[in-house]
Design a protein around this nucleic acid. Structure first.
Lengths: 71, 71
DNA sequence: TCTAAATGCAAAGTATACTTGACAAAATTT
DNA sequence: AAATTTTGTCAAGTATACTTTGCATTTAGA
């Protein structure tokens, strides 16, 4: 990834949407098949999920990608 | 990623959409700031982009995530 | 208020996304 | 048909997504 887009940060509304569904990080993690820490790290912006995991999260939370992720 | 979703493959319509816009892999790569090989590997399903790159591709190709990526 | 559940964070390891360079094959252009 | 562009793929290296374990802090429930 070149400089121009390197600084761009992908934000997400995971924490809010997850809370609306009354799911814990552990619950959501189990739904999509990753560890609790992975969910936590995505929520706190420590990392940038794969597109596959992002789409699994959209499905689990019944949202479009654009509703959950944005620049 | 656990067994249940491990086998799931994220497909995409990158090659077709890119061709519709008359872009080469190199053109598109430059637009989003990655190497030509990265675009090629995503098109041939060899790998699964990050959500950030996926969204950059959506913007470059003027498509929603769901129009470009699917299970 | 006491207890239990949920979250944040860190370290060390593994898997894989992404890089550069290179070459051959296929497609496009002249 | 010859030249040029585009694509597929391979190899070796780097960056980072994701794992597990563990512990401290915060939040929620009894």
């Amino acid at each position: 990834m070149k400089e121009e887009n390197e600084e761009l940060i992908l934000h997400n509304r995971l924490k809010v949407v997850r809370a609306e569904k009354n799911l814990t990080q552990g619950n959501l993690a189990a739904l999509v098949g990753v560890s609790r820490q992975t969910i936590g790290s995505i929520e706190t912006g420590q990392f940038n999920p794969t597109a596959k995991l992002a789409l699994l999260l959209c499905i689990a939370l019944d949202k479009t990608f654009e509703e959950l992720f944005y620049f």
